[in-house]
């Protein structure tokens, strides 16, 4: 089981990093989601892998599993869920406003200067 959990985390991270390095917003978001899944699985495993053990005190328990990683992973899931929702909205708004879903900032310099106004740097001075 250790091998399974470890390789699952590894594969999730690899997929996440690969998608993160793509040039368009949708693969990047999916990559971020994969990375946060990997973090969640990893956090589960930090309290050691234990099966069929209760996390709270019970009189007839033979042993316990660490409850703290479950609390940590719950917090992490909530935060990454909210963040994913935010970045999806952000990507959509960006796509609708600029007409492109590229991640890079190549167009930034053009976009920063209002298009309709003259550019005195190029010599077109308003009369």
């Amino acid at each position: 089981m250790e091998l399974l959990v470890a390789s699952a985390t590894g594969v999730l991270v690899a997929v996440g990093v690969y998608l993160l390095l793509r040039g368009r917003t949708f693969p990047v978001i999916v990559g971020l989601t994969f990375l946060s899944y990997a973090a969640n699985v990893f956090l589960f495993a930090i309290g050691r892998l234990a099966i069929n053990r209760p996390p709270i005190i019970s009189p007839n328990a033979s042993g316990y599993t660490d409850p703290l990683p479950q609390a940590l992973v719950l917090t992490a899931i909530v935060i990454s869920f909210g963040m994913t929702a935010l970045i999806v909205v952000l990507a959509l708004r960006g796509f609708l406003e600029t007409g492109s879903d590229r991640v890079d900032l190549d167009t930034l310099d053009d976009a920063r200067a209002p298009r309709k106004k003259p550019d005195p740097g190029r010599g077109d001075w308003p009369a």
Binding site: L20, T25, V28, L32, L35, S36, A38, A39, I79, S80, M83, L86, I87, L90, A91, R93, G94, E97, T98, V103, L105, T107, L108, A111, R112
Partner: peptide, 20 residues
């Protein structure tokens, strides 16, 4: 505004990676 949204996506993405 468009430039702010573009830069904002990068900012959010880099910070999500940092959080992970």
């Amino acid at each position: 505004g468009a430039p702010r949204l573009k830069a904002g996506f990068q900012y959010v993405a880099i910070n999500l990676v940092a959080s992970t």
